[in-house]
Nucleic acid binder design. Sequence first.
DNA 1: TTGTCATATGAAATATCCATCATTTGATCA
DNA 2: TGATCAAATGATGGATATTTCATATGACAA
Lengths: 113, 113
Amino acid sequence: MKYPSFDHFFMTLGNRHRVRMLQLLNIEGPQSVNSIAKALDMEQSAVSHSLKHLLQCHFVTVKQDGKERIYAINQDTVAPLFRQIRRHIEKYCVEGCEHYWETEKEAHYDYQR
Amino acid sequence: MKYPSFDHFFMTLGNRHRVRMLQLLNIEGPQSVNSIAKALDMEQSAVSHSLKHLLQCHFVTVKQDGKERIYAINQDTVAPLFRQIRRHIEKYCVEGCEHYWETEKEAHYDYQR
DNA sequence: TTGTCATATGAAATATCCATCATTTGATCA
DNA sequence: TGATCAAATGATGGATATTTCATATGACAA
């Protein structure tokens, strides 16, 4: 018998680009690879590589649309995770944790602001 | 104005040792650094380094007890996160995701089994 | 077909993280 | 104080992940 390992899924979320991509997909809705790359000022191949990780963990889904592939967030489970982390941060890490914080510009796609 | 970055917190959870430590603390209760090291067959300094990360994210708390420091899990927020990830895995990643799974021995401290 | 656009893939360079060792700090007690 | 045990810290080599570039694949339309 085998069991899943949590750390792999958390590790996939433990990356600034991937989190920003999820936040983008959540706020702006499903979109293509190029669209994501443009919005987040990333290389196409970097976006593609990152999406592969997110896809493997089922944090996003894809569907083909002509030449494009439209990626969508798996809101069902990603949203609760983000909500939980946000709750944790607000409860425990607001004061005395300045070094964890980022500027407004960098945080443009922070979730549910 | 500044905003927190989620990825840092997820990254801290995205590590096998740290997840196992949290699972241990959850199942067996608060304990010292040496005790954790012995239980998980880790070096004292490795445990200490890992605990520092968990502490910075407030996933654990400490209290001094004589020469020892007793670490405890922050159940209030870690438990829901783990529950959520487990739910996600069970719902989306049980079939066709064999490569994500670990053996029973490695998973000894998987959460709430 | 052939050309074009969108995306994926592979491999090499780079950056980042982690394990380990030696050392230091800190608490306790004789 | 000095001895002892517990834990933290710092530095560094090695492992792992990410970025980047070049190229391949795949869909579509002419």
